[in-house]
């Protein structure tokens, strides 16, 4: 604390006692964050980077192994598999969530008095604890007796093996994830309600039909929110863990899902806390971080082509 204030105070020797007082008080208020930042963010980041060059099982002191962990990243077939699974999931999940959420938000936006009721209907699944979602959907997705395939059977369709067929396990997980679109729906609904009605009136007078109004007013006006959900959902879905771990990992023998459902963060977690390969897990974490950063930068860079910022 003293060291911190000394560093900041010296270059501003001309400040009045009152200003200095304010500054010290401000630093005191943010000091919990600063301590936490050092102990739980900055320090661990550096430590994680260091650990990535070691072999470390917590019980024995870390052993420096140079680039071995990073070489392993390139050659480990399970790593490629898990990264591929996570990317596959993200590519499917993110656009679908955004489309379904927008569809539901458009529906909700037209509901008059009962809006609160339907908002609750669509939001409740997303406050259901992820472990319960996983346990429940193991049965909803069950190929033989699950709700989905029973429903498909009513339409005369033989449903796929959502939990057993390696080709259908990830689509099944995407289906499950769509049940939890609630908060994205609420965000889109708020954005839709913020579009000034005059814009639609003006467009109607100019003879624009429903689709044209949607395409040229609604979409641009909510594009900021759409972009936000794109970035946030991409980052989150690359890190999917809890539902899938609940369904297929832990003590259970999960058959085909042990490969088809092995997502990046599940593999990382197992490396770190089941096989105690802390060094390799740290290298994996940094690879994920770099991938997320690159994707986010690309999304930010391309955003000005399609995101409309009012007043910008």
């Amino acid at each position: 604390m003293t060291q911190q204030s000394a560093v900041v105070v010296r270059p501003f020797g001309r400040t009045t006692p009152l200003q200095r007082n304010e500054m010290l008080a401000g630093l005191a208020f943010i000091s919990p964050w600063f301590i936490g930042f050092l102990v739980f963010t900055a320090g661990p980041m550096i430590a994680s980077l260091g650990l990535a060059f070691t072999e470390y099982d917590v019980l024995n002191p870390p052993k420096f192994v140079g680039l071995q962990n990073f070489q392993r990243l390139l050659t480990d077939p399970r790593l490629g598999l898990s990264l591929g699974n996570s990317i596959f999931y993200t590519v499917l999940h993110v656009p679908l969530v955004m489309m379904v959420a927008l569809g539901l938000a458009l529906l909700l936006n037209r509901v008059g008095k009962a809006a609160g009721f339907f908002r609750t209907v669509f939001y409740l699944p997303s406050i259901t604890p992820a472990v319960a979602v996983g346990a429940l959907w193991l049965w909803i997705l069950n190929p033989r007796i699950g709700l989905i395939n029973r429903g498909l059977a009513l339409l005369g369709i033989a449903g796929p093996g959502w939990t057993t067929d390696p080709n259908w396990i990830k689509p099944g997980i995407v289906l499950m994830s769509l049940w939890s679109v609630g908060s994205t729906v609420i965000l889109y609904l708020a954005a839709l309600r913020n579009v000034p009605p005059e814009l639609y009136e003006a467009a109607r007078i100019d003879g624009a039909n429903g689709w044209q109004q949607f395409r040229h007013i609604t979409i641009p006006m909510i594009s900021g929110t759409v972009f936000f959900t794109l970035v946030v959902n991409t980052i989150a879905s690359l890190q999917i863990f809890t539902e899938v771990y609940t369904m297929y990992f832990g003590n259970m023998n999960s058959g085909a899902a042990a490969s088809a459902g092995l997502f990046y963060n599940i593999y990382l977690f197992r490396q770190a806390f089941e096989f105690l390969r802390m060094g390799y897990a740290s290298a994996m974490a940094w690879l994920l971080f770099v991938i997320i950063m690159i994707l986010t930068v690309i999304q930010l860079r391309t955003s000005n082509r399609w995101v409309y910022y009012e007043g910008a």
Partner: peptide, 15 residues
């Protein structure tokens, strides 16, 4: 906020 939890997970456990 951008930092994936996985990056700090192991060292925070060590703390």
């Amino acid at each position: 906020m951008m930092l994936p939890g996985a990056v700090t997970m192991v060292p925070v456990f060590l703390v």
